[in-house]
Nucleic acid binder design. Structure first.
Lengths: 263, 263
DNA sequence: CGTGCCAGGTGCCAT
DNA sequence: ATGGCACTTGGCACG
């Protein structure tokens, strides 16, 4: 294994573990604790979690997660801005304090029993790429505006309108300006209202009412109602079709890169 | 420790681990794997994560999390509806497949090296209670409407208005109806618009323009602008004040409970 | 730093 | 199942 420091503690007393954990946290190691604990949180809201067996992870940037044996999401947590302290309180247990500012939030984990502690320093430089984000959808449509409608000329993307940004700003074949709002998933009423705000601000600033088009793979009924009521247009977009175009584009980019590398 | 089955595997070959993992997953044990892996995801979006050292957790309901050494959120995951399979592919590695329907999504984790595997069955029956959610704010204000204004009579909470629900529906001392929208944190323009929709729908349905009040601990400038423009009112709420009232309410509830229990 | 907005958002509860 | 909405939303990008 490439792990420089991967240590496992099992059967140690809480007092012994406190010292181990203090060092690990000071070193910004990854820490995993399996044990029986209580958790209190107070900050934007407040919560109490009674005694039970959980997995607590302290990450190398001091993010802290408390995971129950079920479910996707942590029951309690503290993001990476937190400062973490470990103490041992006799007749109480091993206490983790995680505090962060802005917003001021306090998280306290009290372990009454610890079954296992794992400490390690993970090396993770692997690149992460996400495809089919809204940004990709926007880029593909901006490069292939014929998907939206014929003879559409794209003037810009992420054009600032008032306090927001319209995804695509274009000119149609009759010379009318078009504001396009994109949703990668089902468009809600909020999306329609967002587009409407852009249209209104544009109208006030330019004295010209632009067309507003909402593009999404599907639309909530309230979205359709709102669009119709506000005189906005909409188009369904076939994500698979975009995906195909995207893959082509990606492979092109890759081959170019390879070309340059080889050269 | 109360852990019935807490086992640690270190230094085993990938082929050996596959068998261990198959049994653990079939038994719905909690599994933690520390190792070097690649991750591919395809579903609503698609992603690729290159080689690096990570923590993979398979929960007892087969939720799967891939955590990098930094950050609050998992880089990849699969919720508890997933079906998980483990296989060993020579010259590739230890492969985890997690698939779910609706939406159809595929997650593949390929470990080329594994430093540690922990398998256990966690018992966690501890109750979890969250305080100071919007629901609490609503209940406290509905029970103490004098905080909002004098002589306000609450007619209902979560009253359906059109397709949404207004948080508090009330009657003021002049006999005018009041729609109250609450935000536990800084109110945005969206909150003001949400309230405005309720006011408009109510006006159309009842032929009477109700007052609309947005209540929050703070307001974004765009929220204030929108409120003023649309003729809506707003009130600041002191969360600490509510918190005190809430604690009193809770303690009252507890004492009552104790009373009944003792009796 | 706040404000706006996306996210594989997730989760809860309604019809 | 779909819709509407809160969330300790987290995260990023921009003014």
């Amino acid at each position: 294994m490439s792990y420089v420091n991967l240590k496992v503690y099992s059967g140690d007393s809480l007092e012994e573990l406190v010292e181990v954990l203090k060092i690990a946290i000071a070193r910004r190691s990854l820490v995993i604790i399996l044990g029986e604990c209580r958790v209190d949180y107070e900050g934007r809201a407040a919560s109490r979690l009674e005694l039970g067996e959980r997995v607590v992870i302290i990450k190398q940037d001091s993010a802290l997660l408390v995971h129950r044996p079920h479910g996707y999401s942590p029951v309690n947590w503290q993001p990476s801005t937190a400062i973490i302290e470990v103490t041992f309180k006799p007749s109480v247990g091993l206490v983790l304090h995680a505090v962060r500012d802005r917003p001021r939030e306090y998280l306290t984990v009290v372990f009454v029993r610890v079954g296992l502690v794992v400490i390690g320093e993970l090396v993770d430089q692997g690149g992460f790429t996400m495809y089919l984000e809204e940004r990709d959808m926007r880029d593909i449509l901006a490069e292939n505006p014929w998907i939206i409608e014929e003879d559409l000329r794209v003037l810009g993307v992420e054009k600032p309108i008032g306090e927001g940004y319209v995804d695509i700003y274009a000119l149609d074949k009759s010379g009318r300006h078009v504001l396009v709002e994109l949703k990668r998933i089902t468009a809600t009423r909020e999306a329609a209202l967002q587009l409407y705000r852009y249209v209104e601000v544009y109208r006030k600033e330019h004295g010209e009412t632009p067309r507003g088009i909402l593009i999404a793979p599907s639309f909530a009924p309230t979205a359709l109602e709102t669009l119709t009521r506000l005189g906005l247009e909409y188009r369904y977009v076939d994500l698979k079709r975009l995906w195909e175009l995207f893959k082509k584009r990606e492979s092109k980019r890759v081959s170019l890169q390879e070309f340059f590398t080889k050269k």
